[in-house]
Nucleic acid binder design. Structure first.
Lengths: 191, 191
DNA sequence: GTGATTATTTGACCTGTGTCAAATTTTTGC
DNA sequence: GCAAAAATTTGACACAGGTCAAATAATCAC
């Protein structure tokens, strides 16, 4: 487990049970079937979507091409940060890649709890810090690594993506064409 | 001014003057001469560095090549987020590109004020949120635009970088070779 | 199971951008 | 103001990775 996530979990576990219960009181579970969208461009993202079961992804369309920016497994949080923070229309899709179960953490209810308990505010801040650092690392991957290197890194850091998802989605997450990813795969599987 | 920064400024201006004064009580000003480093790899980043006067940048070295990740002008905040949050050794340099005046906001003093006043914690959280969104946009630029398009966008969004800094630094910020940036510039200056 | 659809691989070719080297322009020190 | 150093431009060439098309493999519907 990533050290940032570990810190958040540790803190979360050490919350006063009362506070913990109050936070979770606002949670609502929901199911989505494979291929459906949890968020679409134009909508305002008004919640954190905590994945309980299944796989989802966030992507946007640029020049008729899908670009996958994030892939969510169990315990990951799907959100359009930009839309959520500024309460403006999202420009991304969040799509269920399998049948999916999520816990919905509503913006305004969460805000109430954060105002009431500083430690929850702190957890939320840590989540954003983690997110910022994650973006920084992802940016670094694009600035320093070629397609093969990014693929190898993905295999090491997120093997589930390569193992469980079609080449087309892995390719769009690595920002290469599927043909190129296919060639990279054949190059490495021979050795 | 960027809408996120505007929100932070607005909120900051509406702070109770007492609280505002207490926050700024911990600020310390410092000068750096051109070419000196405010942070180097191996050090732990223990403060926000608010630029008052001059220009600075953050960069790291990969395969003997400098990659500039951020450029700071008046009112920008220089920080190695990763190092600051996790209190671990930084892997970046922060360098004064001109003679520089900064306000140093020390980690532990700032933490005290944040604990005491929820509105300061809120401001800090907004800063990180802004940072995360900024990273997301920068990532998008690398995923969707070629070198010329990134240059045009930079001219529009951050003309001071192109106008005030040497080609070598602009190039490393755009993640292209200086030769390529030079060709892009000549292509556009003729028209 | 079989045909149809979809996903993946392979081939041919092209373009953007990197590298190395050389030429030119600008800046700096004295 | 001039020589030396540094920055920028220009040229020649190589190659990663994109596109389009075709072949093959895997999956799905019934």
């Amino acid at each position: 487990m990533n050290p940032y996530i570990r810190r958040i979990k540790d803190l979360s576990n050490r919350l006063d049970p009362q506070v913990h219960a109050e936070m979770e009181g606002g949670f609502v579970d929901k199911k989505f079937s494979k291929g459906s969208f949890l968020l679409q461009p134009g909508q305002i993202c008004t919640s954190h979507l905590l994945v309980k079961e299944g796989v989802a992804r966030k992507f946007y369309i640029h020049n008729d091409k899908e670009i996958t920016t994030e892939i969510y497994f169990h315990d990951d949080v799907a959100i359009s940060l930009d839309s959520y923070i500024m309460r403006k229309a999202a420009d991304v899709y969040i799509e269920a890649l399998t049948d999916l179960e999520v816990t919905i953490i509503d913006y305004s209810r969460f805000l109430d709890v954060k105002k009431k308990y500083a430690e929850i505010m702190m957890l939320d801040k840590m989540f954003i810090e983690y997110y910022a650092v994650w973006f920084e690392q992802r940016l670094k991957a694009f600035q320093t690594m070629d397609a093969s290197q990014r693929y190898i890194q993905l295999l090491e850091k997120e093997p589930r993506i390569v193992q469980q998802l079609p080449v087309s989605i892995t390719a769009s997450y690595l920002n290469v064409s599927l043909e190129t990813l296919s060639r990279i795969r054949s190059k490495f599987s021979l050795r």
